[in-house]
């Protein structure tokens, strides 16, 4: 059983050149090991940028981001799932997984595809897969890189509801089996209510935390009514915060 790392964010300043207001200023956050934390906020607020800092893709900021005590940029790379699936179109599903970690064998890559119910599509090119399938391959690829720390950047964007439900089922089953630390960026409170243990509301420029909720009940076992209730709570709080 894998155990997710602790992630500690203490960002003093992150600004983009030519923009008058910093993106982030004085943001501190502690993510408990093996917890699923949803970062909820409106589009364009800076959630994805924050995720890129945690992934170590963007190192141009002052402050620190530690993954189990190591700076994010030098810690083992996180399993990143981008908004678009971002599979390399010239590689098959299996080879996309092996591309990020050549040490794994073809059989191991196929086993990862089995975890997302895509074993039979191992030899398919991304263009031959539907949007939902591509996201699942992207998830399998993220697991190949680092099953302990997953960074999910709006993984359900531009998918229809049926595919979202299907993908959420895959996520829940994976979280349950592998116990990773997960940072899920979303602008839908419902995603948080279904998948997360904790929801952090982000808003404003500079980006600030406007709400922090421990979500009751075990994820995956929450009733529809419970999910709706938590969704309403988060949405309400978001509306109040932006007023």
């Amino acid at each position: 059983m894998a155990n997710g790392p602790r992630v500690t964010l203490d960002i003093a300043l992150k600004r983009f050149p030519r923009l008058p207001v910093p993106l982030i200023e004085g943001l501190a956050l502690e993510i408990a090991p093996s917890s699923v934390v949803a970062l909820v906020g409106p589009s364009g607020v800076g959630k994805s940028s924050l995720l890129r800092l945690v992934a170590g893709i963007d190192t141009d900021f002052t402050g620190s981001i530690l993954v189990d005590g190591l700076p994010a940029a030098t810690a083992p790379p996180a399993g990143f799932v981008f908004q678009d699936s971002r599979l390399l179109p010239w590689l098959t599903a299996r080879d996309n997984i092996r591309a990020v970690r050549p040490a794994i064998t073809a059989a191991e890559a196929t086993a990862l595809l089995r975890q997302v119910d895509l074993e039979t599509y191992a030899d398919a090119f991304p263009r031959q897969l539907s949007g939902g399938m591509q996201r699942r391959v992207a998830l399998a690829r993220a697991l190949a890189v680092n099953p302990d720390l997953l960074l999910l950047d709006e993984p359900f964007v531009s998918l229809d509801r049926a595919l979202v439900t299907d993908l959420q089922r895959v996520f829940l089953s994976l979280f349950d089996r592998q116990h990773p630390t997960v940072l899920l960026v979303t602008h839908w409170p419902e995603d948080a209510a279904i998948l997360a243990d904790r929801a952090i509301l982000l808003d404003g420029r500079p980006l600030r935390i406007v709400g922090d909720f421990q979500l009751e009940g075990k994820r995956g076992e929450r009733s529809r009514a419970h999910i709706e209730q938590m969704t309403a709570l988060i949405s309400e709080h978001r509306t109040e915060a932006t007023r």
Partner: peptide, 15 residues
């Protein structure tokens, strides 16, 4: 985007 993918998964130069 693919460039960013390479950086996110820390691809060495040759890869």
């Amino acid at each position: 985007d693919y460039d960013e993918l390479g950086r996110a998964f820390r691809f060495p130069l040759l890869r």
